[in-house]
Simulated assay, not measured.
Amino acid sequence: MTLSDLSPSDMEVLANMVADRVADRMSNRRKLLNRNELSEVIGVSVPKLDTMLRDGELPVIRVGRKVLFDPHAVIAHLANQSRGA
Rank of each mutant, 00 (worst) to 15 (best):
S9W: 00
S9Q: 06
D10L: 11
D10V: 01
D10Y: 04
E12N: 00
E12V: 00
A15L: 10
A15M: 05
N16W: 03
N16P: 04
N16C: 10
M17E: 15
D20P: 05
R21W: 04
R21D: 12
R21T: 11
V22C: 07
V22E: 15
V22Q: 11
A23V: 07
R25Q: 12
S27L: 14
S27E: 13
S27I: 09
N28K: 14
N28W: 04
N28G: 10
R29C: 02
R29G: 02
R29H: 08
R30H: 06
R30C: 03
K31H: 14
L32N: 05
L33I: 10
L33R: 12
L33H: 13
N34Y: 01
R35W: 01
R35D: 09
E37N: 14
E37C: 11
E37T: 11
E37A: 15
E37W: 08
L38T: 03
L38Q: 02
L38F: 04
E40S: 04
I42D: 10
G43V: 08
S45A: 09
V46P: 10
V46T: 15
P47E: 08
K48R: 14
K48M: 13
L49C: 15
D50P: 12
D50C: 13
T51N: 10
M52G: 06
M52L: 09
L53H: 13
D55I: 01
G56H: 03
E57P: 00
E57R: 10
E57I: 00
L58I: 02
L58A: 04
L58M: 03
V60Y: 07
R62A: 14
V63Y: 01
V63C: 05
V63P: 01
G64A: 09
G64C: 07
R65Y: 05
R65I: 01
R65A: 11
K66I: 07
K66Q: 13
V67L: 08
V67A: 01
V67M: 04
L68T: 07
L68M: 14
F69K: 01
D70I: 01
D70W: 07
P71N: 09
H72N: 08
A73I: 07
A73C: 13
A73H: 05
V74R: 01
V74T: 03
H77I: 02
H77C: 09
H77W: 02
L78M: 12
L78P: 09
A79Q: 09
A79C: 03
Q81E: 13
Q81G: 05
Q81T: 12
Q81F: 08
S82E: 11
S82V: 05
R83Y: 13
R83V: 06
G84M: 13
A85G: 13
